[in-house]
C-alpha cells in the first residue's frame, strides 16, 4: 500500500468533517482580523471566528456527563477566545490582558484535568507574575498611543503564509488525533487525577525523581536573574558610551541623541 492514497483518503475524510471547516473559517477570521483595514471587516472577522469556534466545539467529544462537558467547553472557550484575541489585538497592552485571560482558561483546563498544582501555579506565576512583568515593560517602553507597527501586521503575503503554516500544524495534529475518536469508552479516573493527596504525591515525585533538575532549574533562575540585571546595566553603560557620554536621565533612561544608534531615531 502506497502511503499517498492513504494520506489522500485521510484528508478526504478531514475535508468532510466540521473540524476542518471550523479551522478554515478560523483561518479566514484571523486573516480578516489581521489584515482588515476597516472596522466592518474586523467585526466580520470576529463573527467568523465565533462561528469557527462553534464548529470546533461541535467536534469536541463528550468527556463525561453533560455538566462536566459544559464546564469543559466554557473553560476551553475562554482559553481559545483569549488566545485569539491576544494575537489579534492591536494594542500590545490588550494583547497582554487577553493573554492573561487565556492563561486563566488554561489554568481552568489544568484544574479540570485534576492537575491542581499546575493550575494554581499557572495563575500565580504566569498570569500573576510574568504577564504583569510584560505589562510593566510595555508601560515602560510604550506609555502612550500605539505604534504604526502594531496597527499593521506583516505584509499581505506573510499573513496567509503564517496561516497556512499554522493550519498545516493543526492538520497534522488532527490527523494524528483521528485515531483517538474511535475509542469511546468510560475508563476509571487515573490515579494522578483522582488522588486526594495530590500535592504530597507531586512533591514526593518531584523531589524523588527530579531532584537534580530542580536544582538546575533553581540555578537557571538565579543565573537568569543576574543575567537580566547584567544585560540592563551593560546596555545602559554602552548606550551612554555610544551617545558620547550623555548622562543617563534621572529616570534611568538615556536620551538616544546623536547618530550613534543603529538606524537612528529621527
Amino acid at each position: 500500500m502506497t502511503p499517498l492514497p492513504l494520506l489522500v483518503g485521510q484528508f478526504d475524510d478531514l475535508l468532510r468533517s466540521p473540524l476542518c471547516w471550523g479551522m478554515m473559517l478560523g483561518a479566514a477570521s484571523l486573516w480578516l482580523l489581521f489584515s482588515g483595514r476597516s472596522h466592518a471587516l474586523r467585526v466580520m472577522g470576529k463573527v467568523l471566528g465565533g462561528i469557527s469556534l462553534m464548529m470546533l466545539a461541535a467536534t469536541l467529544m463528550m468527556v463525561g456527563d453533560w455538566s462536566s462537558q459544559i464546564v469543559f467547553c466554557f473553560v476551553a472557550a475562554v482559553t481559545v477566545v483569549g488566545a485569539g484575541a491576544a494575537v489579534t489585538a492591536r494594542s500590545p497592552v490588550y494583547t497582554a490582558i487577553w493573554f492573561a485571560v487565556s492563561l486563566l482558561g488554561t489554568a481552568g483546563l489544568f484544574l479540570f484535568q485534576g492537575a491542581q498544582f499546575l493550575g494554581v501555579a499557572t495563575v500565580v506565576v504566569y498570569a500573576g507574575a510574568i504577564v504583569v512583568t510584560f505589562l510593566f515593560v510595555l508601560m515602560l517602553a510604550q506609555p502612550e498611543g500605539h505604534a504604526p507597527y502594531d496597527r499593521i501586521s506583516w505584509a499581505t503575503f506573510a499573513v496567509p503564509a503564517a496561516l497556512v503554516g499554522a493550519a498545516a500544524v493543526m492538520a497534522i495534529v488532527l490527523t494524528s488525533l483521528d485515531s483517538l475518536r474511535a475509542v469511546d469508552e468510560t475508563t476509571p479516573t487515573p490515579a494522578i487525577a483522582g488522588s486526594s493527596q495530590h500535592m504530597a504525591e507531586l512533591g514526593s515525585h518531584l523531589f524523588a525523581y527530579h531532584l537534580v533538575a530542580i536544582e538546575v532549574v533553581g540555578t537557571l533562575l538565579m543565573v537568569a536573574l543576574v543575567g537580566a540585571i547584567a544585560i540592563v546595566l551593560q546596555g545602559r553603560k554602552s548606550a551612554a558610551e555610544s551617545t558620547g557620554g550623555a548622562a543617563p536621565l534621572p529616570g534611568g533612561r538615556v536620551v538616544p541623541g546623536g547618530g550613534g544608534l543603529p538606524g537612528g531615531t529621527r
Binding site: P3, L6, G165, V169, I172, S176
Partner: peptide, 14 residues
Amino acid sequence: MLILVAAKMIWAAS
C-alpha cells in the same frame, strides 16, 4: 518542521 513531520507520517503510514 512540517516537512520533517510529514515525511515521518508518510514513513509511518507506509
